[in-house]
């Protein structure tokens, strides 16, 4: 199966859901014109990132009326978008929903909201507690939100659980301006490259652009293919919509040529963790 994914590298407005929904609808129209099957938006694409105390006013249930036009649009194109989720426990989560066929299919809560240095997410968000691995018409899919991507143990586990396409919405601030690329770009490329080259997954990494106060987000979205490496990439710092093609044959062939997934034995990991626990 081949299908087209659109990487929507947008600049959301901080705290303005209505404006961001309108921006999403425009991107969806553009992706439909290009015959895309799936569109992926960045982390917190419907709210902006540096919300701080606006978190309380923008948190919504996944089924909120404001998101209904997007869910409706998913009859024509599958959609992954980021929002502040009001959990059933009343806690705000940094989440992304996946909608397809006119219905919400899955919601991922960011597992590792960074809280150090410039980041203060746990001051405002709760932590997700589950890996997101779910079946779709495209195959087995997973979602990691920004920092989650750097937790290789979780990404490896998702691969072992059969994820073929990893959606990685992100709000990654630019830093490290030495050389031809940002130092943070090299870190992201390393994480995405490991997931594709070693674990055999496609990765759709979608990073936002623009500034929330002094934090500037660098874009550089990419689709990484287990056989071909990066096959589509967004520009640095500019809003853009980038199209890439996913061919599931590449996943199967990579798995045959380099059978990491076949070799993987989670019982060894489980045993090690149990041993550690009993010590």
């Amino acid at each position: 199966m081949t299908y087209t994914v659109a990487l929507a590298q947008i600049n959301p407005l901080c705290g303005d859901i209505a404006a961001n929904v309108a921006m999403h609808r425009m991107c969806i129209e553009q992706a439909l014109d290009a015959h895309a099957d799936l569109i992926v938006f960045p982390e917190l694409s419907l709210t902006g990132y540096a919300l701080r105390d606006q978190t309380l006013t923008v948190m919504r249930r996944p089924g909120a009326a404001e998101f209904a036009p997007l869910v409706e649009s998913s009859r024509n194109i599958a959609i992954c978008a980021g929002f502040v989720e009001e959990g059933e426990d009343g806690i705000p989560y940094n989440s992304a929903f996946f909608a397809d066929g006119g219905a919400l299919v899955h919601v991922h809560r960011k597992i590792y909201p960074p809280t150090h240095g410039m980041f203060e997410e746990l001051r405002f968000f709760g932590r997700g507690r589950s890996l997101s691995v779910f079946e779709t018409r495209f195959g087995c899919m997973g979602i990691v939100i920004c920092r989650d991507l750097f937790h290789m143990l979780e990404v490896s586990t998702m691969a072992a659980l059969g994820v073929q396409l990893l959606l990685a919405p992100s709000a990654m601030p630019a830093r490290g301006f030495q050389g031809d690329e940002l130092s943070i770009e090299r870190t992201v490329q390393l994480a995405v490259g490991s997931a594709t080259s070693l674990l055999g997954m496609y990765v759709a990494y979608v990073n936002r652009v623009g500034f929330d106060d002094g934090l500037g987000f660098y874009g550089g979205s990419m689709l990484s293919d287990p056989e071909l490496g990066v096959t589509a990439s967004g520009p640095r710092f500019e809003a853009a919509q980038v199209l890439g093609t996913i061919d599931t044959v590449h996943i199967a062939r990579h798995a045959y040529q380099f059978p990491i997934h076949r070799e993987e034995d989670l019982t060894i990991v489980r045993h090690a963790l149990n041993e550690r626990r009993t010590q």
């Binding site: 901080c14 705290g15 540096a50 105390d53 929330d212």
Partner: peptide, 10 residues
Amino acid sequence: DFLYPRDWCT
């Protein structure tokens, strides 16, 4: 604990 970004949208 009154914390808003400079780019505060209302």
